[in-house]
Write a protein that binds this DNA or RNA. Structure first.
Lengths: 202, 202
DNA sequence: CTCCAAACGCAAATAATTTGCTTTTAGCGC
DNA sequence: GCGCTAAAAGCAAATTATTTGCGTTTGGAG
């Protein structure tokens, strides 16, 4: 649970980063994304543009940085009494948040950035949330699909439809959750059909 | 099957568009994406930058335009004798192409552009290819999953892993195809678990 | 053939990005 | 606590990209 990559929280560097992030969020809320520029953000943050250029390189990297931070889950998944209900509730909320205009923009910002670090962090956020639900289910002795099966069968379709087609509604998310559970309830095994996969959670 | 959105093929407008596209592809092949700029493309295409700015607005739009065109399938899915084999072969090739460096870049370019038209076109390309396979299977009297089920269970995980995590190998793609067929072979019904969805292909 | 509107070229004006150099500041050994 | 050092920030000039107004070309319609 490292705070940020800066040297020390409280130092000037951290202060600048926080200020730039805050300014970016403020501008993003106030105006269209296409009109947000680095000089604008710099002015809003009370910082010179070259500072931002040197630190982030280009606008896309900064937007991705801000988006990843906003995408970090801030709550524990709600408890409904059963693993399936937990997953359904979480997935429905996830789909709704990601389908919103701002959610879609954040995902695209994360994907547009140069490296693969941002997308992976988002993936690991989802993994962590699902892991919490899975752990609770296991503690109750319930069957629960493998985390990667949930990623493939629930998260992947949700994001795919948002990015490439049209966002799914709650009912269709329910179908995905049912599909994820179908395999577990059929065989005694985990939900995954094919070969092994690493099980790290980020 | 419209050719392009231009007025007429052969007109000046179409010639310019073709030249710009060609120049973009050439530069993309020759140098890093981060170094490709509109003035550079204009020079390579023998066109003034303002033409590109007025037509595409920004680099991202042009890159997306070029990427969508490159993503358009240029072959009919190979026939293996059965729908399942057809789907497996097609999905494996699709996963491999999309996992490559250039494939990943094209997907990201398409997603980064402003409107939703690019991503939708890519989605409909996949739909069309799957529809071809499904039609062949139907002609043979075989059971075959609903196209949307294939999108959710095969395409979505493939793209999700490429974009957010780590690309799947052929073996794992096989697992996805098996999953898509599991529901069809279980019930007599289509592969989809939940409510209705539009069935347009394009 | 002539006209019209859309698309292009050109060049000036504006805005963004890069860069060299100076100044500030956090972390560290004394 | 006190200076030292290196990383990060500020500043301003230089470069590069983007926008824009206006004249010219061109494809299509009457």
């Amino acid at each position: 649970m490292a705070d940020r990559e800066g040297p020390r929280p409280g130092g000037r560097s951290a202060r600048v980063q926080a200020s730039v992030h805050r300014a970016t969020r403020a501008l993003l809320a106030r105006m269209d994304r296409a009109e947000v520029t680095i000089p604008l953000i710099a002015q809003e943050a009370g910082v010179t543009p070259s500072t931002i250029y040197r630190r982030w390189g280009e606008l896309g990297e900064l937007l991705a940085d801000v988006a990843v931070e906003r995408l970090r889950p801030d709550m524990v998944p709600v408890e409904t009494g059963g693993g399936r209900g937990d997953l359904l509730a979480w997935a429905e909320q996830y789909a709704e948040e990601m389908s919103s205009g701002i959610g879609r923009e954040m995902i695209r910002d994360v994907l547009a950035a140069e490296g693969a670090a941002g997308p992976r962090r988002c993936c690991s956020y989802a993994r962590q949330q699902i892991a919490v639900i899975a752990r609770r289910a296991a503690a109750r002795g319930e069957a629960f699909p493998d985390i990667d099966a949930v990623l493939d069968r629930v998260i992947a379709p949700i994001l795919f439809r948002i990015l490439f087609d049209e966002a799914l509604g709650p009912e269709q998310v329910g179908g995905l959750v049912a599909c994820a559970f179908a395999a577990v309830e059929r065989g005694g095994a985990r939900g995954r059909v094919s070969g092994s996969r690493r099980t790290d959670a980020g």
